[in-house]
Design a protein around this nucleic acid. Structure first.
Length: 509
RNA sequence: GCCCCCAUCGUCUAGCGGCCCAGGACACUGGCCUUUCACGCCGGCGACACGGGUUCGAAUCCCGUUGGGGGUACCA
């Protein structure tokens, strides 16, 4: 019986020699926990000038989909998480989709068989449970090692019964200890991890085998992954020892287990949860900068008193040992607030461009956007940039600027709390605006004239004086600043809307 | 059952033995600013799960309890 060396070396790679990977299964839509893992791996690689490998673990044909694969690419590109080797870009250790690496696994499996570190197992789950029961052991215990030392005659007898054996890895009988990058030293007691299956009865390898094999073949030095895989680490380390023995690997990577990302309460973020779907955030108008920042905050902080930071700042400081081991809960409001700060930070010219797709999707501007629409949007940018939290707010905020005067309707809530006689207020405003020439039609001039006439002369409070005007101009209770909006609309349009508004208000009384 | 992880304001966290009767952010809330809504500014509310140790001294180290979570598959 062969024993893998109990003192296999752990990698000592640092700096540019660091190689990390992100290796999702293409099932479903990318969710925030998964993307956070990608981000941390990326930050770890960039911080040290190392390499990020992007591999796809599509060994489960029943659940994997090509659509999901493309969504993964889309997510990575949207967030600006670039990789050095992997799918789409290639690299020295390809192919990078496990579905295309069958022969490679077959080769490694053969080596493991030859070395005797994996063995054939014919036991059925029922038999294992029954043996535990018969021996007075807890029947819930895992595999009991029954087939470890079967003779050739016994194996032949099982085969004669038509049984297809699986192949299991011989677990070492020592405690397995490793230094987790985020949690420190962790020890799994000897005997707590049963010999596990690495090859199915049909000859196909399992995740438990291909994941470490690919990591070894690709020279991965640091494995940053979800906490759900913490318990499988002793198995991986044992397999690594075997891989080192057969010459497939040279050292065990360092592991780091990232905390869970939870939803409301203490439940795991389920795939159905809208908060778990990355694209949901994009649809609502999150900036990739804001999303990256928020994702980073799910377990890591830039400094004690600053939680808004750029991708570059994250790269400057990210360190796996600073990752907090406790689970994080997603907080949409906090995420929105972080995004809002990034909205303010954006260059106005850039901000304008970012709004365009959202406005097009809502039908506010044409696709492609016309020159006139673009100019108007650029002019409106300074008005809305400081007051938006998500790009998705742009359509409601700006629609009134892009529609024909005749198409403007006044929303119901914009007809309330108008004061005693909104029609009279609007009427007076029309008189004042008519007195302003096309050349003088600017926000400051408008405010001066309207304030003097309505607030001072008519004695109406600013709130009640400008409310009706806002409703008439924008059709909404909430809008960009009134006078600036009028300036953007121009004299003719402003007057047309005020006149229409006057009729509506008169009809209310 | 067995194995493993986690434990500071509602939430994300700072804290790695004295700087902490615990700091920041979001949320909530009072006020200021004000052409609405925001932004911005000032203030408030609000936490070291519990019990033992170790120490001159513990949120920080150790043990236990409790409470969460995960694993224990021929899923990944």
């Amino acid at each position: 019986m062969t024993h893998a060396p109990a003192t296999a070396p752990t990698t000592e790679a640092t700096g540019a020699d660091i190689r990390v990977r992100f290796c999702p299964s293409p099932t479903g839509t990318p969710h925030v926990g998964m993307v956070r893992t990608a981000l941390y791996n990326w930050a770890h690689a960039r911080r040290h000038g190392g390499t990020l490998i992007f591999r796809i673990e599509d060994t489960d044909a029943a659940r994997d989909s090509e659509e999901s694969y493309h969504q993964l690419l889309d997510a990575m590109r949207w967030l600006g998480i670039d990789w050095d080797e992997g799918v789409e870009v290639g690299g020295p250790d390809g192919p990078y989709r496990q579905s295309q690496r069958r022969e490679i696994y077959a080769d490694v499996i053969a080596k493991l068989k030859d070395a005797g570190v994996i063995y054939e197992s014919f036991s059925t789950p029922e038999e294992i449970t029954e043996r535990h029961r018969a021996a007075g052991r807890d029947p819930q215990l895992g595999y009991d090692g029954f087939d470890r030392d079967l003779t050739e005659e016994q194996k032949a007898a099982f085969r004669a019964e038509g049984r297809l054996p699986v192949w299991r890895l011989r677990m070492p009988d020592d405690d397995i200890t490793f230094e987790d990058m985020v949690r420190g030293e962790i020890t799994f007691k000897a005997g707590s991890t049963p010999d596990f299956v690495v090859v199915r009865g049909n000859g196909q390898p399992l995740y438990t085998l291909v994941n470490p094999v690919d990591d070894a073949l690709m020279g991965v030095t640091h494995v940053l992954r979800g906490e759900d895989l913490l318990s499988s680490t002793p198995r991986q380390i044992a397999l690594y020892r075997a891989l080192i023995e057969v010459g497939v690997a040279t050292a065990i990577p360092r592991f780091g287990h990232l905390p869970y990302v939870l939803g409301e309460g203490n439940k795991k973020l389920s795939k159905r949860d809208p908060e778990s779907n990355l694209f949901n955030y994009r649809d609502q108008g999150f900036l990739p900068e804001g999303m990256v920042n928020y994702l980073a905050l799910l377990g890591w902080g830039y400094s004690a008193d600053q939680d808004v930071f750029t991708r570059e700042q994250m790269v400057e400081r990210f360190d796996a040992s600073d990752v907090n081991p406790n689970p994080a809960h997603v907080d949409f409001k906090k995420a929105t607030a972080i995004n809002a700060d990034h909205m303010r930070l954006l260059d106005p010219v850039e901000f304008t461009e970012r709004m365009v797709p959202y406005l097009q999707k809502a039908g506010v501007v044409s696709d492609p956007i016309t020159e006139h629409e673009h100019a108007l949007l650029a002019a409106a940018t300074p008005l809305v940039q400081p007051r938006m939290n998500l790009l998705g707010e742009a359509p409601d905020m700006l629609r009134f600027l892009f529609i024909d005067d005749a198409d403007l309707t006044i929303a119901e809530d914009a007809l309330k709390k108008m004061g005693e006689d909104p029609a009279a207020v609007v009427d007076r405003a029309i008189t004042e605006v008519e007195a302003i020439s096309e050349d003088d039609f600017a926000a400051a001039r408008l405010e001066e004239a309207l304030r003097a006439a309505i607030v001072e002369d008519m004695g109406i409070k600013p709130r009640l004086a400008f409310g009706p005007l806002r409703s008439a101009i924008s059709g909404r209770r909430i809008s960009p600043p009134l006078f600036e909006s009028m300036e953007l609309l121009g004299r003719d349009s402003s007057l047309a809307r005020l006149r229409a508004g006057r009729e509506v208000f008169a009809g209310l009384a």
